[in-house]
Design a protein around this nucleic acid. Structure first.
Length: 353
DNA sequence: GATGCGTGGCG
DNA sequence: TCGCCAAGCAT
């Protein structure tokens, strides 16, 4: 049972502000248009998981131009989709994206389920995404809680319990302010507010449409909410990568296993990360080593990747493919290996001059 | 509940 | 410079 009364004011205040200040985003239906296309809503929500609007925008444009509907995406080759996703990160999303598209295409006749429960059963669709698609694409009342909503709600109600333990409390509070009508607009309005006004640091309370409803605004430090548990330090790891180049201008690329770091992506052959300091190269050759390792920070560790390069003749052992170096940009390498490739090519340019 | 999983921008 | 953070999900 939701509490009526004062909480209804929050949705009214926020939606009035949203009607004037909503961000125009490629996956949003323009004001007054028909409901948003579920395919585009779903695709954008997957891409936006832990990813900023600015980073997603060009990927969304390329995906929708190339695969305009779920049937087209379902028919795509795995390698094409993985390469198109390269650089966006969290590559399990791309594998689940394809699995989801194929499930919708084969199991639902190409139509997305229109309920939270139905959506939640799809690969890569969790509690947040199911609620967001149900609300935004299908107009259902759903309690949509992402990191923006967590922050806004924690401030509105001055919730002092640290995250992540506060999740249930925050969701219950979000439930009390979610309206029956326009739940999709309400969700997007909350996320707009969190992205542009109720920001993690330096919130712009002076222009916030909800400051009159906000318990944190009445404290000395609204930005102190939400309270967060301290994070663990990232360990540092060491790794080695091998650039094997054939005389005809091709480099040897492998495909990483589906599970684990950069799963399913094309890559240079590497050692285990954090393994022996001097692992054996894949083949005997005249190896040279770049003077500086490629430094890269992942979610839970940082990596110094030492890059070795050599010219080789025959195929290295194991699965792989020879890729034309002048088309390396089309290989869909994740950022770590894109940087390693750039470092090798820069070294070769410098060596010639 | 905790952990593994990318990347780029920001103050 | 560097830690924080982002429209989370799977296990």
């Amino acid at each position: 049972m939701r509490v009526e009364g004062d909480q209804g004011k929050i949705a009214r205040d926020l939606l009035a502000h949203y009607d004037v200040h909503a961000r125009r985003l490629p996956w949003r239906a323009p004001p007054g248009a028909n409901a948003a296309d579920p395919y585009r809503v779903w695709l954008s929500e997957i891409m936006l998981q832990q990813t900023t609007v600015a980073a997603v925008a060009p990927y969304f444009a390329r995906f929708t131009a190339r695969w305009p509907d779920v049937m087209a995406l379902a028919a795509a080759e795995d390698a094409e989709v993985m390469a198109a996703w390269a650089g966006l990160g969290y590559y399990a999303r791309a594998r689940n994206l394809l699995a989801c598209a194929r499930a919708v295409a084969s199991g639902h006749g190409g139509a997305f389920p229109d309920t939270e429960e139905g959506l939640r059963a799809l690969p890569g669709v969790g509690a947040y995404t199911a609620a967001a698609v149900a609300a935004i694409a299908f107009g259902r009342r759903a309690v949509v809680v992402d990191a923006n909503v967590e922050r806004v709600v924690a401030r509105l109600f001055a919730i002092a319990t640290p995250l992540p333990a506060a999740r249930a409390e925050i969701r219950a509070a979000a439930d009390t302010i979610t309206p029956e009508a326009r739940a999709g607009d309400f969700a997007q309005a909350m996320m707009d507010l969190g992205a542009t006004i109720c920001t993690p640091r330096g919130p712009a309370c002076g222009i916030c449409p909800l400051r009159g409803d906000c318990a944190a605004f009445r404290t000395a430090d609204p930005a102190a909410f939400p309270v967060k548990a301290p994070k663990k330090a990232k360990p540092h790891r060491l790794g080695h990568a091998w650039w094997m180049e054939r005389a005809d201008g091709h480099v040897w690329l492998v495909r990483r296993p589906d599970k684990g770091m950069l799963g399913g992506m094309r890559a240079l052959p590497t050692s285990d990360w954090g393994a022996a300091p001097d692992p054996a190269p894949p083949v005997a050759a005249g190896w040279e080593t770049l003077p500086d390792p490629v430094m890269h920070v992942f979610t839970h560790f940082s990596l110094a990747l030492t890059v070795h390069h050599a010219h080789v003749d025959g195929d290295p052992p194991g699965e792989g493919e020879w890729w034309p170096i002048d088309r390396i940009a089309e290989a869909g390498l994740p950022t770590l290996f894109r940087r390693a490739a750039e470092a090798v090519m820069k070294e070769r340019r410098d060596a010639r001059h």
